[in-house]
Amino acid sequence: MSKVGKLPIAVPAGVTINVADGVVTVKGPKGELKQNIGNKVTVEVKGTEIVVNPVDNSKAANAAHGLYRVLINNMVVGVTSGYSKTLVINGVGYRAEVKGKELVMNLGYSSDFVAIIPEGLTVTADPSGKVTISGIDKQRVGEFSAQLRTLRMPEPYKGKGIRYDNEVIRRKVGKTGVK
């Protein structure tokens, strides 16, 4: 039995859970999320708690047990408080700005990158080089921020590039001339 899967999920006030036909629907003040669950686990709503149980004691059922418990917990947290990631853009002339449903970024290449902001996500860019991506779906927030980061990965010599706000780039010493 999964150590994570055994823990019940607390449902805060204002959040409704519906389980029907293998689909868990979570509605809250920020929106609604749906998740298909496999046939390896069962989901029960008991008052203000959600309990996820494996169907049998197989290895696949135990793996799905912990997975779906965490996915449902992420849905509950997403519809109540939401998720956000902050990217920091470092470099001379590097900047980002939001124009409608597009994020336009100048990252030192010959042309600008234009990223279309996915539905359900909000992106804000400030002049100091911080881009904040927020939404209710943890997976979509993380995926979009990772895609933006790959446009210009941080390099270890000058620290230029796009990095997460809490990420630490280990700096390297450059070459020294012969003396």
Rank of each mutant, 00 (worst) to 15 (best):
M1R: 11
S2Q: 07
K3T: 12
K3C: 03
K3D: 12
P8Q: 04
P8K: 05
I9T: 10
V11F: 06
P12K: 05
I17D: 03
I17P: 02
N18G: 08
A20E: 15
D21K: 15
D21P: 02
G22I: 07
V24K: 02
T25H: 02
K27E: 13
K27L: 06
G28V: 02
P29N: 13
P29G: 14
L33E: 13
K34H: 15
K34Y: 03
N36C: 05
N36I: 02
N36R: 11
I37E: 01
I37S: 00
I37R: 01
N39A: 10
N39S: 12
V41M: 07
V41H: 08
V41G: 01
V43K: 02
E44C: 03
K46F: 04
T48F: 06
V52I: 15
P54C: 00
V55T: 12
V55L: 06
N57W: 01
N57A: 14
N62F: 15
A64L: 00
G66V: 09
L67P: 01
Y68P: 02
Y68E: 06
Y68F: 15
L71Y: 07
I72T: 04
I72V: 13
N74L: 09
M75Q: 14
M75N: 05
M75K: 05
M75L: 07
V77G: 02
V77L: 12
V77S: 05
G78K: 08
G78I: 06
V79P: 03
S81K: 12
G82P: 01
G82L: 03
G82A: 06
S84T: 03
S84L: 04
T86Y: 01
L87R: 10
V88H: 08
V88M: 12
I89C: 06
I89H: 05
N90Q: 13
N90R: 14
N90D: 15
N90W: 03
N90P: 00
V92I: 09
G93S: 08
Y94F: 15
R95K: 15
E97C: 01
G100V: 09
K101R: 15
L103P: 09
V104M: 05
M105D: 08
G108H: 09
G108P: 07
Y109H: 09
Y109P: 00
S110L: 12
S111Q: 13
S111M: 10
D112Q: 14
F113I: 06
I116V: 15
E119V: 11
E119Y: 00
G120L: 06
V123L: 08
V123R: 04
V123A: 04
A125L: 05
A125D: 09
A125V: 02
G129F: 06
V131K: 07
T132V: 15
T132R: 13
S134N: 12
S134T: 13
G135Q: 05
D137E: 13
K138N: 11
K138I: 09
R140S: 15
G142N: 13
G142K: 01
F144L: 08
F144Y: 15
F144I: 09
A146M: 09
L148E: 07
L148M: 10
R152D: 00
M153H: 04
M153I: 12
P154E: 02
P154L: 03
E155V: 00
E155R: 08
K158Y: 09
G159Q: 10
K160V: 11
G161M: 10
G161D: 08
G161N: 07
I162N: 10
D165M: 05
E167M: 09
V168Y: 14
R171E: 11
K172R: 14
G174L: 05
T176V: 13
K179I: 11
K179Y: 12
K179A: 14
